[in-house]
Design a protein around this nucleic acid. Structure first.
Lengths: 211, 211
DNA sequence: AAAGAATACGAGCGAATGCTCGTGTTGTCT
DNA sequence: AGACAACACGAGCATTCGCTCGTATTCTTT
């Protein structure tokens, strides 16, 4: 796992982190997630993130180049969390002979739970129009997600062209992205009802492509 | 709570606009739409709007209280445009005995055309997380749209409760809102394909509720 | 122990931005 | 014509925000 890092001595000269530093990094990311979740990315100030993390602005910049860098690191963090979630949710059997309902069922529950557990996630990913810096930070993960979803949809619709599958994946992701904030902001029974609606949207949409 | 300033005349003492002023207002709104569309609401600066309109910052503030006020006026402008569009699209016969496909068909085309013709519209309405000021400016129109859509859905689903109809309307609007930027950003055939997808999403979703 | 690196601080810099203000010009009303 | 309101200008104020810098402390390594 590349633990012993090859200090490509090149231009970067990253500091060799101590244990304290790693803790700080996690503190900062956690704080950033909270601030992004509460105020959104634009309105979130780096000083507010530092304050939330209980450190000074100067300390923050010992670990991150700038605000976009924080977003990028946080996005990476969420990406690995999502990858882990995917590993848990998908077992061999569950993919092979899956109906649309089964697929949506297995994915949607954990996905909603993930969004509720990580309120900063949608602040980074669910925006339709992003400032350039945020877009750059988020695009790679977004692409990875698209790749995964396209894979699944390719299994459901083996006869479709690559372009069609890609488009259906894009639409599917967009549907989920747009509904998630609604679901997260709702409470209790309304949240469940909206989740059911999203379920209906996805199954009926994909089902239509099957026939 | 009220302002300390003297007085009294309950109404705000708005200046009586001259013809020149009305022209300026329209210039400014047009410019604001362009700037919002290009940079988004947050990144749009009032000085940039003034420059785009070919006037000085000071002149801009003779017609609008602040940036939010511009957004509010622009939102109102779009609201009336939309109302006019609705009047054109819906004739008596088209509503009465309409299938889901018919309804989606009649509405979607003009709606896409509207969004393409008014690029500033989605910059104001299509965001999932809005700064407080923008939200306040946009909420009334958003509510009005919801009311209209709920009306239509109530016709389609006469047996559902008020809450259910409201929820389905919310979801429907959200689906359109999220897909519209995708459609607008696409070009030519891909745009048509995405429009077809949105059509499929809406019809299959609403159809599912019919059965 | 000594040196160098990593961590920590926080006042404040430079730039950007929403908006104002003093002043001058054009239109309207009597 | 005179008076007053509407319109116009643009330099710059007040504030915010991302980020830096000088300095001080803690850890690692020798």
């Amino acid at each position: 796992m590349a633990s012993e890092e090859t200090v490509t001595d090149g231009s970067q000269a990253r500091p060799r982190r101590q244990a304290r530093g790693q803790q700080r990094i996690e503190q900062i990311l956690h704080a950033a997630a909270a601030v992004f979740a509460e105020h959104g990315y634009d309105a979130a100030t780096t000083n507010a993130i530092a304050a939330q993390a209980g450190i000074s602005p100067g300390s923050l910049y010992q670990f991150f180049k700038n605000k976009d860098d924080i977003a990028h690191a946080l996005a990476d963090h969420y990406a690995s969390q999502l990858a882990a979630l995917r590993g848990e949710v998908f077992t061999r059997e569950s993919i092979d002979d899956a109906s649309v309902e089964d697929l949506v069922d297995t994915v949607l529950g954990p996905l909603v739970a993930f969004n509720l557990a990580h309120p900063g996630f949608k602040a980074l990913f669910a925006r339709t129009d992003m400032p350039a810096g945020l877009r750059a930070a988020v695009t790679p993960i977004h692409t990875a997600i698209h790749h995964r979803v396209a894979e699944l949809i390719g299994l459901l619709l083996p006869d479709r062209s690559h372009e069609e599958v890609a488009r259906i994946a894009t639409v599917t992701i967009q549907l989920v992205r747009s509904m998630m904030p609604l679901i997260a902001d709702a409470s209790g029974p309304e949240r469940d009802a909206l989740t059911t609606e999203l379920h209906a949207v996805l199954t009926s949409y994909l089902h239509q492509h099957l026939s």
